[in-house]
């Protein structure tokens, strides 16, 4: 992020580094001017800063504010405790400077890694597994989480017979995934209510539901909502 003030024009990280190094007189610096520019750039409608990046810039602003406020405190030369406090403040500033320098190094490395990734992206191995454009994330905009949860609740209500005996066999995630993969292997569209094995108890319903979430995550299935019902089909299958 660039900052342009009367005594400096350049990167914010460099400004903080120069302040901590004593190359810029922090007393001649209007902190509000810097902070206003940072906030303006973060809040700008065209801003590319996400939460992480924006907070990193705000931490730099906070470093400037802390440095200036510490240096504004009077130092009484004859007072030993005050000397200790000044020394501690100095040590903290040195630590902040070291952290900042290290952070700047990693920012440089991140830039180099980005260039390396861009060059590497020009090379395609056979059978490139990258997801085609536009399908990186499944479009679940037509299926709300609430509808999925409501559908699960409905399935649980429908399939919750009073247990006559305690089943100690369990039902593994592997079994749930195998059941779903086998059910959807034909490529036909299947209603959410039909994905559970016949006579399935609560445990089986929950495991199959978790299995469905896993298949959605890995992109093996597509989910659509139509006329208030949720349908699932295997990824890549023709609409049926």
């Amino acid at each position: 992020m660039n900052i342009c003030i009367s005594c400096y024009d350049g990167l914010l990280t460099h400004l903080v580094r120069m302040i901590l190094n004593g190359e810029i007189d922090v007393f001649s610096l209007r902190v509000t001017e810097v902070v206003d520019q940072v906030i303006e750039q973060i809040m700008c409608p065209d801003s590319t800063y996400d939460t992480d990046d924006a907070s990193a810039q705000l931490v730099l602003c906070a470093t400037i504010m802390r440095t200036k406020s510490r240096r504004l405190l009077p130092v009484e030369e004859d007072s030993a405790p005050e000397e200790d406090a000044a020394e501690a403040a100095l040590l903290e500033e040195e630590r902040a400077l070291r952290s900042l320098v290290e952070y700047q190094h990693f920012q440089t490395v991140a830039g180099i890694l980005n260039e390396m990734a861009e060059e590497s992206a020009k090379l395609f191995p056979r059978g490139n597994k990258e997801v085609p454009e536009g399908e990186e994330r499944q479009d679940l905009s037509h299926v709300s989480l609430l509808s999925l949860v409501a559908a699960l609740e409905k399935a649980l209500d429908n399939r919750d017979p009073v247990p006559m005996s305690i089943d100690t066999g369990g039902y593994s995630m592997y079994e749930g995934l195998s059941h779903l993969r086998s059910l959807l292997s034909s490529g036909k569209r299947t209603a959410f209510s039909d994905i559970f094995p016949r006579g399935a108890g609560r445990l089986v319903v929950v495991v199959v539901f978790l299995g469905l979430l896993e298949l959605i995550r890995t992109g093996e299935v597509k989910v659509n909502e139509r006329d208030g019902r949720i349908y699932i089909r295997k990824e890549g299958a023709v609409n049926a």
């Binding site: 996400d50 980005n114 990734a117 990258e130 085609p132 990186e136």
Partner: peptide, 15 residues
């Protein structure tokens, strides 16, 4: 083929 891009902060964490 889609080549995903990592955001700047994510690249920094990776570095």
């Amino acid at each position: 083929p889609k080549q995903y891009r990592l955001s700047r902060p994510t690249l920094e964490v990776l570095a």
